[in-house]
C-alpha cells in the first residue's frame, strides 16, 4: 500500500476518534428512536392520570357524554370504533379479495398494470380529500341507499332507523374504500407465497383457474387472511380525518346503522381544541391511550400470526 493512503487510513488518533464518534452518533440516534413510542405512551398515560384518578372505572360503565357535569362514557365510542373497523374490514375483504385474485391470475401486462395503478392511486389519496369528496358527493345521496336497506332488511333491529347524511353508514362506506388498496396489496403478497410448483402441478392436471383458486389458493392463504384482517382492522380503527368529517359527532351509542355517532378518533379530533376543563382534556388523552393500546394489540396479533405462519419465508 502506498505510504500516503496508509497514513490516511491508519493514522491512529484520527482513525480512532472518527470511528468511535460516528458509531456513538448511530447508537445515540437508535436509542432516541427506540424511546419515541415509549415517550408517546408515557405522555398519554401521565395526561390521562387525572381522568383515571377522578373517574376511575366509571368511564367504562356509563353511556353518557356530558363534559359540563364531568360525566364521560368511553364504552360507546370504543364499541363504535371496533364496530366500524370490523364492518369495514369485512366489506373491504369482499371487494379486495376478488381484485387481488384478478390481479394475480386473470390479468397480465397492461391490464394488470392499469389496475395496479388504480389501487396505488386510491392508496395515495389523503383521507382529508376523501372526506371532502364524501361530504359533497356521497353524503347527499346516501339516504337513498339507506332507504333501500331499511326496506329490505328492516326486520333486523339495528338496520331500522331514520336515514341521515352523516353517520355510521357513510363513514363505513368511505373507510371501506380506504381499506381496499391496503388489503389488496397484502392479499397479493400472500398469494405470491403459495408455492409456484403446486400451482403449475394443478394446471398440468387440467384444472381451471377457478378450481385452483378454490382448492389451492384460498386454503393456503386462509390463515394469512387472519393477519390481513387484523392489520386492516388497525388501519380502520386509527383512521381520523374522514371519520371526523363524516360520522356526525354524537358521542352516544348509535340507535341504528344510519344514525350519527362518534369514534375514539373523531371525539379527539373534534373536541380536543375546545376541552375546557382539566378532567375533560384528561379524558381525551385517556381516549388516545385506549386507542393506542387497542391499535397496538391488534397490530401485535397480526404480526404474531404472520411470524408463526411464515417463519421460513
Amino acid at each position: 500500500m502506498p505510504k500516503k493512503i496508509q497514513n490516511i487510513v491508519n493514522f491512529p488518533p484520527f482513525c480512532l476518534s472518527n470511528f468511535s464518534l460516528f458509531e456513538l452518533l448511530l447508537k445515540l440516534v437508535a436509542v432516541l428512536l427506540i424511546f419515541l413510542p415509549i415517550l408517546i405512551f408515557v405522555v398519554l398515560f401521565i395526561n390521562s392520570l387525572p381522568a383515571i384518578y377522578h373517574l376511575g372505572f366509571s368511564v367504562f360503565t356509563t353511556n353518557n357524554w356530558d363534559p359540563v357535569d364531568d360525566k364521560f362514557g368511553v364504552i360507546s365510542p370504543l364499541l363504535v370504533t371496533v364496530m366500524v373497523g370490523v364492518i369495514c374490514t369485512f366489506l373491504g375483504l369482499m371487494l379486495s379479495t376478488p381484485i387481488a385474485l384478478f390481479l394475480s391470475f386473470y390479468s397480465r401486462g397492461r391490464i394488470s398494470a392499469f389496475f395496479s395503478t388504480v389501487i396505488d392511486a386510491l392508496a395515495s389519496i389523503p383521507s382529508v380529500v376523501l372526506g371532502l369528496w364524501a361530504i359533497f358527493y356521497v353524503a347527499p345521496h346516501v339516504d337513498k341507499v339507506e332507504n333501500v336497506i331499511r326496506d329490505l332488511f328492516g326486520f333486523i333491529p339495528f338496520l331500522k332507523g331514520n336515514p341521515s347524511p352523516f353517520g355510521l353508514f357513510t363513514t363505513i362506506l368511505i373507510l371501506t374504500l380506504m381499506l381496499i388498496p391496503i388489503q389488496t396489496v397484502l392479499i397479493k403478497e400472500l398469494i405470491t407465497l403459495v408455492p409456484r410448483n403446486l400451482i403449475e402441478a394443478g394446471f398440468s392436471l387440467g384444472t381451471t383457474k377457478f378450481e385452483i383458486v378454490r382448492s389451492l389458493i384460498l386454503p393456503f392463504i386462509k390463515k394469512g387472511m387472519i393477519a390481513v384482517i387484523f392489520l386492516s382492522l388497525a388501519r380502520g380503527m386509527e383512521e381520523t380525518m374522514a371519520t371526523a368529517m363524516l360520522i356526525g359527532n354524537r358521542p352516544l351509542f348509535p340507535d341504528s346503522l344510519f344514525s350519527p355517532t362518534a369514534t375514539l378518533t373523531s371525539i379527539i379530533a373534534n373536541e380536543f381544541a375546545e376541552a375546557f376543563s382539566r378532567i375533560y382534556l384528561s379524558v381525551l388523552f385517556e381516549l388516545g391511550l385506549i386507542l393506542f393500546i387497542l391499535v397496538f394489540v391488534t397490530n401485535v396479533i397480526a404480526k404474531l400470526i404472520l411470524r408463526l405462519l411464515y417463519r421460513g419465508v
Binding site: L39, L44, E238, T240, F272, G288, F292
Partner: peptide, 10 residues
C-alpha cells in the same frame, strides 16, 4: 401503527 392523531396530541 400509532394512530396519527395520538402523535398529534402527544
Amino acid at each position: 401503527g400509532t394512530p396519527t392523531i395520538v402523535c398529534g396530541i402527544c
